[in-house]
Design a protein around this nucleic acid. Structure first.
Lengths: 336, 336
DNA sequence: TGAACAAAGTTTATCGATAAACTAAACAAA
DNA sequence: TTTGTTTAGTTTATCGATAAACTTTGTTCA
């Protein structure tokens, strides 16, 4: 293994000079030595040892990407989370940090992980744990950004989307297409979905459509439950003409469930989703949905996090990104 | 930050004794001290610093999970890879190691990564790079297991499935259902697919069906290309009655492409896939496919890898796992 | 001319844990 | 009694890089 000592010896300088070159402290090294050392680094394929670096510098350049794990649930199977993790990893790498992607299930899991690796910061995709966690992590004095949640705990950075608007424009769109019997599918009390639900209710109210409790499906946003909802809706023949699913994957389930029961989509039932995952283009019909730009979201989150890591204070600790409606094929004009 | 020094001082012993307790060298410590130290560890939430540990012990407990990255391609969008990574991470964690999931694009990327982190071992999901890589890595003396490839380089551990059999039984199944005009879709020259292709050809030959070059679609196994193939097949009206897609995601594309062109699946065209990804159950019709148990595959690979890490020699350095056919709805009896 | 300062380094101590070599006490066997 | 062995530790050096403090030489300007 090639170490900085080897390079230093060959260059006839001290290891500190090598260290200064590597870390770009160029004002401390003559131009000649910079060039010489860089050449030797290339020649011997020298790569600094990160363990040693972290140990002495107290900065690991590791950003934890912490994702929920529940039982046997494998987050890589959830297309939204999966895509999101991919772009986050990329954003982290672009900033010169290392992503440590980990599924975590308990609070002590996280605590241990953070201490183990001495992470410089972390990004959370864990809306459920919110309050408990943030306290614990803040105790560790760990810069952290929480994605898709509405944490009020100070020191916690927030990056999310305008969920209220998403819920509002999705519902308004269905209303404008002539629908009045619009079902809602998603966990109405959960952090982000709560806001989408508020948007849904306000859009109905603004159009003078009475809110109807019996067409609210308050369930987790997964494919299987979408399937059941699709079947149930088609059994209620005409009771519901459109449905707003708070996750595309659930919307796809609803479409399939309804279809299995002899419903044609969008002729018999209009469906609008949320997230604009890749699969929403591949489905048939292609899903009309509320789009959030996850790349922008990830970059914004990582920018914010690295700013906090380096300065410890940030200008703004909450960012709300815009959403837009993408019209495809799963919603039809209703003339009932 | 709590260190082993703090624990040692409080317990009235040296740090080595603490270290011995942590690492389970119990024959070096009295029962009384073991208990005392364990209590203090719990009391102060002490977690050993991995950087320090790696630096002194030369063992990082990190296993690199190296995944291909091509341009903007995000592997988290590929459902097969995505699921596979999930189960690999889980298998690694169960063995007491840490997974470092990384997308890599160039050889120097990998070399740098491995050196940077001083990985104990790595698992490769990179069939394309095969030869070049294995040499480089073996130079670093890194235990590594290659998934889904047929590397002949010694020191490289191989875990894969019986691709030949998969290709054979998929094709035979279509033949038994009365099909004779069976297209093949997949990269015929690529490592694993080559074997599936051999199985395909042999199954045809064994049934006396002539091989037809004009119905081989030699393309990458992605959804979009599946779409085009589906469209093309439906344009060739009756020229092809069944297709063997070497990846489910491509099969789903073919189904959709054909359907967009007015073909009904499976009535007008039978489709069989490969991999048995989650989405193959969610599709409509549900996809008949060749199933590989990725959990078993991942566990086998990690078992093998950790064995090599600890013993440096292994009993057997190639494992070939079985495959089976899962019949769902996308293949129909043909009576032409 | 001399004080102040900048440039280009070096030296030393340290991060936290561990491997390897060493010690001391208790006991057994010859 | 002496030697050997086991148990339960401790001490010391080290992993590789870096922060902080220090040195040396050359330059500036009042």
């Amino acid at each position: 293994m090639v170490t900085s000592k080897d390079i230093a010896k060959e260059a006839g300088v001290s290891t500190m000079t090598v260290s200064n070159v590597i870390n770009g402290n160029h004002q401390k090294v003559s131009a000649k030595n910079i060039e010489l050392i860089n050449e030797l680094i290339k020649k011997y394929h020298y790569v600094p040892n990160l363990s040693a670096r972290s140990l002495s510098s107290k900065s690991t350049k590791i950003i934890g990407v912490l994702v929920p794990l529940e039982g046997d649930y494998n987050f890589f199977k959830d297309p939204y989370l999966s895509e999101l993790i991919g772009v986050i990893e990329y954003a982290i790498r672009k900033k010169g940090y290392f992503a440590m992607i980990r599924s975590v299930s308990t609070v002590s899991d996280i605590s241990e992980l953070v201490k183990n690796w001495n992470m410089d910061g972390a990004i959370f995709l864990l809306p459920h744990y919110d309050n408990i966690l943030h306290k614990i992590i803040s105790k560790n004095n760990l810069p952290l950004v929480s994605l898709d949640s509405y944490s009020d705990y100070k020191d916690v950075l927030n990056v999310g989307i305008n969920d209220y608007k998403g819920g509002y424009i999705a519902t308004k769109f269905l209303i404008n297409k002539g629908h009045k019997k619009i079902a809602f599918a998603g966990p109405t009390k959960e952090n982000v979905v709560k806001e989408r639900f508020n948007g849904y209710k306000d859009a109905l109210a603004d159009s003078g459509i009475p809110y109807n409790d019996s067409i609210i499906y308050d369930v987790s946003p997964v494919y299987d439950l979408g399937l059941s909802i699709g079947k149930e809706i088609s059994n209620r023949r005409g009771d519901i003409t459109a449905v707003f699913a708070t996750a595309d994957i659930m919307g796809l389930g609803i479409i399939e469930g309804a279809r299995l029961n002899g419903y044609a989509i969008p002729n018999d039932l209009s469906v609008i989703g949320f997230d604009n995952i890749e699969a929403s283009i591949f489905s048939s019909p292609k899903l009309t949905t509320i789009s959030q730009n996850i790349t922008t979201k990830a970059e914004c989150a990582i920018d914010l996090l690295t700013e906090k890591i380096n300065n410890s204070t940030v200008k703004q600790n909450r960012y709300v990104l815009d959403v837009e409606l993408i019209e495809r094929q799963s919603v039809l004009q209703y003339n009932g």
